[in-house]
């Protein structure tokens, strides 16, 4: 077997040409779109999943249903769902408006199904992690807070959510990584930008030195680097967002270690 492609050397040449980085069709413009879409989609999914997960963990309602649904959804291929929604929804969306330099005019009928699929995929990991985190909170801690005179809202905000934070953050992290990766699949929808655009369009003419396989490789590696950077950013964020009392980190200046809580590790 031999490769039918221009090799890694062509990637070096591609990366050395500033034209491939700059401009409206360049790597940086696609990276900016990729970032913007990721932030918007994760935010929308988090606004649905985290409050719902907190409520479910707090009341114990709907957990069986949501757990089963999340499991079943894992079996649904993203590409199939995307194409189903494109064929079903796109003809009914008539808006031609674009959004600044993120969405070209006419892209909306394809962006809406694509964003919908990604939100659907991003909700389950956040939802299941959030309710699992809230449920795993030591009931004695919540009881003590109630005994100390906290209102139910205060118990949720000041005891349950901080204690569940490692798991909530882990859910947010896996949802974000999933969206970063799946956006490349979403580029199968016409006119939807992001780094996947270079990957999908590159197949038109694989041997094209600026838009072919080198561009696919360049965009692909950028996606992988973006995912690794996001992963690192979440690990770093955990140091600030998770209370030292929960994570068991040393509290600076006091020299005493907080008690280890082994039950709250990421799932």
């Amino acid at each position: 077997m031999s490769s039918d492609l221009p090799g890694f050397a062509s990637l070096g040449r591609w990366l050395n040409d500033p034209d491939n980085w700059l401009g409206s069709g360049g790597l940086l413009a696609h990276l900016r779109e990729h970032l913007a879409f990721t932030v918007v989609i994760v935010l929308v999914a988090a606004l649905i999943a985290i409050p719902a997960g907190i409520w479910m963990g707090h009341t114990g309602k709907g957990i069986l249903l949501a757990g089963g649904f999340a499991n079943a959804l894992r079996a649904v291929p993203a590409l199939g769902l995307l194409i189903l929604l494109i064929v079903e929804l796109s003809p009914h969306i008539h808006s031609r408006t674009g959004v600044g330099n993120l969405l070209a005019p006419g892209a909306l009928p394809y962006f809406i199904p694509a964003a919908l699929v990604l939100v659907i995929l991003a909700v389950p990991p956040m939802l299941t992690n959030t309710y699992a985190g809230i449920q795993a909170v030591d009931p004695r801690a919540a009881d003590a807070a109630r005994g100390a005179g906290m209102s139910p809202l205060q118990v949720a905000l000041r005891v349950e959510i901080p204690c569940a934070m490692p798991l909530i953050l882990a859910g947010l992290r896996s949802a974000t990584l999933q969206v970063i990766a799946s956006l490349t699949v979403a580029a199968y929808a016409p006119l939807v930008g992001g780094l996947g655009r270079l990957i999908v369009d590159g197949q038109q003419n694989l041997i094209d030195p600026s838009l072919g396989y080198p561009a696919m490789l360049g965009a692909g590696i950028t996606v992988a680097v973006l995912a690794l950077v996001a992963d690192g950013a979440f690990a770093l964020a955990g140091r600030y967002v998770i209370s030292p009392g929960v994570s068991g980190r040393r509290i600076r200046g006091r020299g005493t270690a907080a008690p280890q809580q082994s039950t709250l590790t990421e799932s």
């Binding site: 077997m1 490769s3 039918d4 492609l5 490349t184 692909g220 996606v223 995912a227 992963d231």
Partner: peptide, 23 residues
């Protein structure tokens, strides 16, 4: 952990280069 973070489409693209297989 790092391997799991790499998106599948990216691996499908890079592997032919590393393995010498057809795309």
């Amino acid at each position: 952990g790092a391997l799991y973070t790499i998106p599948s489409l990216v691996l499908f693209l890079v592997l032919p280069e590393l393995l010498g297989t057809r795309i």
